[in-house]
């Protein structure tokens, strides 16, 4: 009756308001960064190196450094993660060992990044003598994204209907042919979006590159894997924490705006990949 209708209406309005608040938080952050960051954004800012003496200059080595780090991390994490996921989803029998393996993957995914950072610094940089470098940071970052890649890829492969596998196997395909031609191809768009989101995670990571990558103030692009590397999050962190130096403060906003834009780019491309695939399947 009227009571029930009123109740429905009130609940609807409450839900609408709460949703609005949650969604708008992103826009508030983005807008805030845009307003404060756009002041320093210029071609010069994007193409020159920072000046750590006067807290001026640009972020070019940091942009490239971030891209290097993410690329190295993905080159390591994607094949390892996908192959492990293939083993878990297609080959392994459900037993105690795989259960333990899954437990460790889940735990590794939740490890605080400071722990990975310390491991990278102590073991990779000092013990293995790889130095505070692109390589140490890239490898350490991949520890962060491997479990994520495994989980996402395994889920994507498990979501492939078992009827497809049966059809392929019944045609005389081997398990590998089935996995390669059917399971991976079907799961590919989801694995790809998973990897892209993993890239996003690595891109935004601060602690690990700060501990084993470099100071964030690098004025040059690393010429080898074993040179320190600058990155946008570390740059932002360092420039934002220079007290009342206003030129540094503004640049921190500039760095974080560029970071957020790179993030958006990744999200949008993963959306496009999925949409294109779904459209292809429908016609």
């Amino acid at each position: 009756m009227i009571g029930a209708q009123k109740e429905e209406l009130i609940i609807k309005i409450i839900l609408w308001i709460v949703s609005l608040i949650s969604v708008s938080s992103f826009f508030v952050i983005f807008l805030y960064m845009f307003i404060n960051g756009s002041r320093v954004i210029s071609l010069e800012f994007l193409t020159t190196a920072p000046n750590p003496i006067f807290w001026t200059g640009g972020i070019f080595p940091q942009i490239i450094g971030s891209l290097y780090l993410v690329a190295l991390c993905t080159v390591i994490a994607a094949p390892l993660g996908i192959l492990t996921a293939i083993y878990l989803s297609e080959y392994a029998v459900d037993n105690l060992i795989t259960k333990i393996a899954r437990f460790f993957i889940v735990t590794l995914a939740g490890i605080p990044t400071i722990v990975i950072g310390l491991f990278g610094l102590a073991f990779l940089a000092y013990r293995l003598n790889l130095g505070i470098s692109l390589f140490s940071a890239g490898v350490a970052l991949s520890f962060l994204t491997i479990p994520w890649t495994i989980t996402v890829s395994e889920e994507a492969m498990r979501a492939v209907p078992k009827e497809y596998r049966e059809a392929a196997l019944a045609l005389g395909a081997t398990r590998w042919q089935t996995t390669w031609h059917i399971v991976l191809k079907t799961a590919a768009p989801w694995i790809m979006t998973g990897i892209l989101l993993g890239i996003g995670k690595a891109l935004g990571e601060t602690t690990i590159p700060l501990m084993c990558g470099g100071s964030g103030l690098e004025t040059f692009i690393p010429r080898s894997l074993f040179e320190p590397v600058g990155s946008l999050p570390v740059y932002t962190f360092i420039f934002a924490t220079q007290g009342n130096v206003s030129s540094a403060y503004d640049r921190a906003f500039g760095g974080s705006l560029v970071l957020i834009l790179m993030f958006l780019l990744i999200s949008v491309s993963s959306l496009i990949i999925r949409n294109r695939y779904q459209k292809k399947m429908r016609t």
Partner: peptide
């Protein structure tokens, strides 16, 4: 052996591929 013996299942289960690719798979 499985090549020599075709199998058709309860629910139609074409691969998420084109019509041509489905037949050409085997």
């Amino acid at each position: 052996l499985r090549r020599k013996i075709g199998m058709v299942f309860q629910k139609p289960n074409p691969f998420p591929k084109s019509i041509y690719e489905n037949v050409a798979f085997g």
